[in-house]
Amino acid sequence: MHDAIRISADINGTAYLLDVEPTAGLLEVLRDQVGLTGAKSCCTEGECGACTVHLDGVPVMSCLVLAPEIDGHAVTTVEGLSGAGLSDLQEEFLNQGAVQCGFCIPGQVMAADALLATNPDPSQQEIRNAMSGNLCRCGGYQRIAAAVRATAARRRSL
Results as ranks from 00 to 15, higher is better:
A111H: 13
M61P: 01
Q142G: 04
T118D: 14
G133D: 05
A111Q: 13
C51L: 06
A98C: 04
V109G: 12
S62H: 02
P68N: 05
H73Y: 09
C101T: 05
T151E: 11
I70M: 10
M1C: 05
A153T: 13
K40E: 13
E92G: 01
V148E: 09
A9N: 02
T76V: 15
P106G: 12
K40A: 10
E126C: 13
L116K: 04
L94M: 11
G102P: 03
Q125I: 11
M1E: 11
A98Y: 08
A146S: 13
G83S: 15
Q124V: 14
S62W: 00
R31D: 03
T52M: 15
D113M: 08
I144D: 03
T44I: 05
R6P: 00
I5D: 02
G35A: 08
S132T: 01
L89W: 08
H54V: 00
H73V: 00
Q96M: 15
L81F: 06
V148S: 09
L30R: 13
L36V: 06
G38Q: 07
I127H: 05
Y16K: 11
I127E: 07
G72M: 02
D32I: 02
V75A: 08
A130V: 08
A130F: 06
A50H: 01
V65K: 03
A153H: 11
R154S: 06
G107N: 01
H54P: 00
I11C: 02
K40Y: 05
P59A: 06
A147T: 08
M110Y: 06
E92N: 15
M61L: 12
G35N: 08
L135S: 03
D10P: 01
H73D: 09
L158E: 15
T151N: 10
I105S: 13
R137C: 02
L158V: 14
M1W: 05
G85N: 11
Y141G: 04
A67D: 12
V148T: 05
V78Q: 10
R154N: 09
L81N: 10
G35W: 07
R6T: 14
E126T: 03
E45G: 14
T151W: 10
L26I: 06
Q142S: 14
A145T: 07
